[in-house]
Amino acid sequence: MTERAQAKERKDGRENAVIHPLTIGSVNLANNLILGPMAGVSDLPFRLLCHEQGAGLVCTEMVSAKAIAYKNRNTKELLKVSDEERPVSLQIFGSDPVIMAEQARQIEDLHWDILDINMGCPVPKVFNNGDGSALLRNPLLAGQIIEAVAGAIHKPLTVKIRLGVSPDTINAVEMAHIAQESGAAAVAVHGRTRDQFYMGAADWEQIARVKQAVSIPVIGNGDIKSPADVQAMYEQTGVDAYMIARAAQGNPWIFRQILHFYQEGEEPVKPGPQEMCDTMLRQARMMCDLKGEYLGIREMRKQAAWYTAGYPRSARLRGMVNDVETYEDLEQLFRAYFGLS
């Protein structure tokens, strides 16, 4: 065997072990790279961009089951799914098993493919209401919710958890067991406690313990920023899939970059000014179409800050973006910033 053939064999073996198709319940994913759910970030336009860049699954912003029940006007937008971005995981949250199950049943005819229950959100307004990561304090109730929702729908159900509420109450293994026994088809584990929010390093060793404890697919989440991080998480945890959230903010190309690394065995090339500008403007257009120009432009301001973080004169650009009111002005500003005609 030639040296080149040996190198290809090593590359293919690494790719098959780390990056590969994944089945969750009845849903087949082309690969095991997942865009995590992020409130105010993973809306339809951003999910579509990440899907086009190679994400095997994209997740919606979390939606309140009670808001669905009350037909909250903002909830309709959060529930929008396009066939072009599928497969899609729709995430809901709540702490009442009856409401969660009934609303899951009510929305099952929408075009999402997987339903996810949020049991990891750390923000006070969610936690203090007994939802999100607060359910880590009540495994019995968590199990009742999972069982009720799993029994109400035919599509696969997954659960997203954290390690626990605090370092003294880590119970991710217990929660994963409960999820599996209650009907979940997979569990995603963020390697931080609720008290950490997003500070400090994710504890991958705890994720590894979850992987060793259950037979359903385990999705690792936390501190995945590059192909090297994917490789390191696989070697340390053996997880079945990788959930990327904050590292995708302003960087939908991260999925393409990781796939390129494993398919070609070389470091990916970063997008150039033309692609960067075109992508930002495309996202802005989609946001304006979906939400109206007034809201779309204002929400694009934070996106522009993420896209250009670390670029020359990015602070000045952020200040100028805050004064933009129309798409035309935004396009002119972005093209001038990147030196494009």
Rank of each mutant, 00 (worst) to 15 (best):
T2R: 00
Q6P: 07
A7I: 14
K8R: 03
D12I: 14
G13A: 06
A17D: 02
V18A: 03
P21V: 13
T23I: 15
G25C: 08
A30M: 13
A30L: 13
A30P: 11
N31S: 13
N32D: 12
N32Q: 14
L35T: 08
P37N: 05
M38Y: 08
A39V: 15
A39Q: 12
G40C: 00
C50H: 05
G56F: 09
V63R: 03
A67R: 07
A69E: 13
K76R: 15
K80Q: 13
P87T: 03
P87Y: 06
L90F: 02
F93C: 12
A101T: 12
R105C: 11
R105N: 10
D109T: 11
D109P: 01
I114G: 04
G120Q: 06
C121R: 03
S133P: 06
S133L: 04
L141F: 03
A150T: 11
A150L: 03
G151D: 09
H154D: 10
S166L: 03
S166Q: 10
E174C: 05
A179K: 09
G183P: 12
G183K: 12
A184R: 11
A185Q: 15
V189Y: 04
G191R: 03
G191N: 05
R192G: 09
R192N: 08
T193S: 05
Q196I: 04
F197K: 11
A202V: 04
I207S: 06
V210F: 06
Q212P: 10
N221E: 00
K225F: 07
D229R: 08
A232T: 15
E235A: 15
Q236G: 02
Q236W: 07
T237K: 08
G238Q: 09
W253Y: 06
I254A: 04
F255T: 02
F255C: 10
Q257G: 14
F261K: 02
F261Q: 06
F261P: 02
P268V: 14
V269K: 00
K270D: 00
G272C: 00
G272V: 04
E275G: 09
T279A: 13
A284H: 11
A284G: 07
K291Y: 08
K291Q: 08
G292K: 07
E293V: 03
R298P: 03
E299L: 14
Q303D: 11
Y307A: 14
Y307I: 15
T308M: 13
R313H: 15
S314T: 14
R316P: 07
R318V: 04
V324P: 09
L333K: 01
L340D: 00
